[in-house]
Amino acid sequence: MAVNNADNTAPTAPMPPQLRAARARRQSIIKFVILLFTLGFLLVPLIAMLVFTLRHPLSGRWSLAPWVAIFTGNGETLGADLTVLWQGLGSSLALCVVTVAIMLLLMVPTMVIVHIRSRALERAIEWVATLPLTIPAIVLVVGLGPIYRWLSADVLNTNPIWLCFAYVVLVMPFAFRAIAVGLNSIDVKTLVEASRSLGASWPKVFFKVIIPNLWQSILSASFISIAVVLGEYTVASLLGRMNLQVALYQLGQSNSQISTAMSLLALLFGVVLLVALDLISGAMRKRKEGK
């Protein structure tokens, strides 16, 4: 038995350099194939959309007319009224601002207080916040429809800006996860106790101690919420409100090339948001490390 134990604890022989190099080459090839397949899966539909906007589907003639119509704001020559497009784009941008503001006012103070006071309540809030992910949008509209009919008739009006209440519910799961990551990455209780022991008031602790440490998470939650609002179609369509995606659908009935080109621009805007988030996060991280 002693001999067996000695054999089991004996160090394994190091792998020869030739085998390590061969394994590294195989891993590099596998990574390259996976990356190539993923890029093809993502880029081929986008390239097809770009080709569709440049090549007329009936005559086969190549033209930049759909893109020129978007950037000049004149689609009459192509039989398209771009008024609905600008109306939907303006509504979506306004919805982004209002939705992000309401989401931050609701989520950030609530999550900070609950994170400090009660972890059990934090799990309950997490369950409530992530619940919209399990409920289809069509089911949400069934519940929201009577509420919006009452709001439109008796309290507010039919302006698309009031979709912000429904959109706050839709972005809650993504915002909660982004803010929760930030809260879990810092010792909130220690920061609060140290600040309070030095005589700082609760508003000062919140705005000058906690919020500066959560900027990266707040930006992540805001950018993700903007991307969700810009891409939302089901709720706005079923509630009869105008936003960017509904406008693109209506525009596609008269000129599908312009609608597809604008969809590509919206996707590009989402990519720019993500890249900006990565650059801002990297800059903030370097600044903290420099301090």
Score class of each variant (00 low, 15 high):
M1V: 08
V3A: 11
A10H: 06
A10M: 02
T12G: 02
P17T: 06
A21S: 07
A22Y: 04
R23L: 08
R26N: 04
I30L: 11
L35V: 06
L39G: 07
G40E: 13
L42R: 01
P45H: 09
V51T: 03
F52P: 02
T53V: 12
H56E: 07
S63I: 12
A65P: 06
V68L: 09
A69K: 03
A69Q: 03
A69V: 13
E76N: 11
A80C: 09
D81Y: 10
D81F: 09
W86C: 03
W86K: 01
Q87S: 04
G88R: 06
G90R: 00
S92F: 02
L95K: 03
L95H: 02
V98G: 00
T99D: 01
M107A: 13
L121C: 04
R123T: 14
T130L: 13
I135P: 00
V142Y: 14
I147M: 05
A153K: 04
I161L: 15
V169K: 00
I179K: 00
N184A: 15
S185A: 15
D187Y: 02
E193F: 11
A200L: 13
A200P: 02
A200Y: 08
S201L: 06
W202F: 13
V209W: 15
I210G: 00
I211F: 08
N213Q: 15
L214S: 02
W215N: 14
I218N: 08
S225K: 04
V228G: 03
L230Q: 07
E232Q: 13
T234H: 01
T234W: 03
S256P: 00
Q257C: 08
S259W: 08
L267V: 09
V271R: 00
E289T: 07
G290E: 15
